Simulated scan of single mutants.
Amino acid sequence: MSPVHSLKAVQKIPASLEQVWSFFSDPANLLAITPPFLNLHVTNEVFGHEAYAGQVITYTVKPLLGIPVFWMTEIKHVVPLQMFVDEQRKGPYKLWHHQHHFKAIDGGVEMTDLVHYRLPFSFLGDIVHGPIVKPKLQQIFSFRFQKVNELFGAWPGGQAMELEFS
């Protein structure tokens, strides 16, 4: 059985908790923070402008070689202004559990993403993790970091995103 990997990304955003929550909890904004190389397209109608428990969102993405992949996620938990969790129901991972945490701090918000994921194909998934999957996830979160800085402004002092894999 392949191991469960984890990713932790932390970004400080110079905006109010309400502004940051409003943006990130609106599924329509996912397109704005997803790199173009993924060719993300939402394929179902998304109701409302704030994530809610039980909400299902379907997409197509093209993560490798331009091959379209179906991805279905469900919002499992929502604590307004604090956190929400999305889980993959069907898609490219054997497991995808993504926690989005928001905390008011002096000067803005600290946003923390915790992702636990497992790759398919047992040992073959493990072989492609280092050279392919991990760098793609780094690209995705780096792109998002830059877009968030464009949308909300950079944190004073130019804080770089903290990104850890384990």
Rank of each mutant, 00 (worst) to 15 (best):
H5V: 02
H5D: 00
A9I: 01
Q11T: 06
K12F: 06
I13A: 07
A15F: 12
S16I: 03
Q19L: 11
S22F: 09
S25H: 10
D26L: 06
L30D: 11
L30N: 04
A32F: 01
T34H: 09
P36K: 08
F37C: 13
L40D: 02
H41L: 06
T43G: 06
N44A: 09
E45V: 15
F47S: 11
E50T: 09
A51G: 12
L64K: 15
I67Y: 12
P68Q: 11
V69S: 01
V69Q: 00
M72Y: 07
T73D: 14
K76V: 14
H77T: 08
V78P: 01
P80Q: 04
M83T: 08
F84P: 03
V85R: 12
V85N: 06
E87S: 02
R89K: 15
Y93P: 06
K94D: 15
H101Y: 09
D106Q: 15
G108M: 06
E110P: 06
E110M: 13
V115F: 09
H116S: 12
L119W: 11
L124I: 14
V128A: 13
V128L: 07
P131T: 09
I132P: 00
V133E: 12
V133L: 12
P135N: 02
P135D: 07
Q138K: 13
V148K: 09
V148Y: 04
V148I: 14
V148E: 09
N149K: 11
E150V: 01
L151Y: 13
F152A: 11
G153F: 00
P156K: 03
P156S: 08
P156D: 13
Q159G: 00
Q159I: 10
A160C: 02
M161A: 05
E162L: 00
L163P: 01
L163I: 09
E164H: 13
F165T: 05
S166Q: 14
